[in-house]
């Protein structure tokens, strides 16, 4: 189980970084989304894995439970990463519509260009 999660985090990170290094806005946004998954799962996994034991108290007996703290942190992180993605998408869209160009590299005069990365 641990290996599955760890390898998934690794693959998501690698794919995310590869896409972030692309030159058009859309793949970069997808890359950032993949990285968000990777980071969220990473944070969640720092609470150690456990299945069938949600962090819900039982009033009558002591039960095994997963670590609630990383879960709470990741929950807000998921929502915030949506906000961040939305802003980035909006910026990318506004930039594309204004210049009819979605390349991310800048030349000296501030316009987008696709020269050496």
């Amino acid at each position: 189980m641990e290996f599955l999660v760890a390898s998934a985090v690794g693959v998501l990170t690698a794919a995310g970084i590869y896409l972030v290094l692309r030159r058009r806005t859309f793949p970069v946004i997808l890359g950032i989304s993949l990285l968000s998954y990777a980071v969220n799962v990473f944070l969640f996994a720092t609470g150690r894995l456990m299945s069938g034991a949600p962090a819900i108290l039982n009033k009558y007996e002591e039960v095994a439970h997963a670590d609630p703290l990383p879960q709470a942190l990741v929950l807000t992180a998921i929502v915030i990463s949506f906000g961040m993605t939305a802003v980035v998408v909006m910026i990318a869209l506004g930039a594309y519509l204004s210049s009819r160009d979605d390349r991310i590299n800048l030349t000296d005069d501030g316009t987008a260009a696709g020269d050496d990365a």
Partner: peptide, 19 residues
Amino acid sequence: GTIAGIAGLGVGALIYAIM
């Protein structure tokens, strides 16, 4: 791809070690 692969490997190994 190399940069991404190395980073992915590192992150995966790190979380494996933690878990």
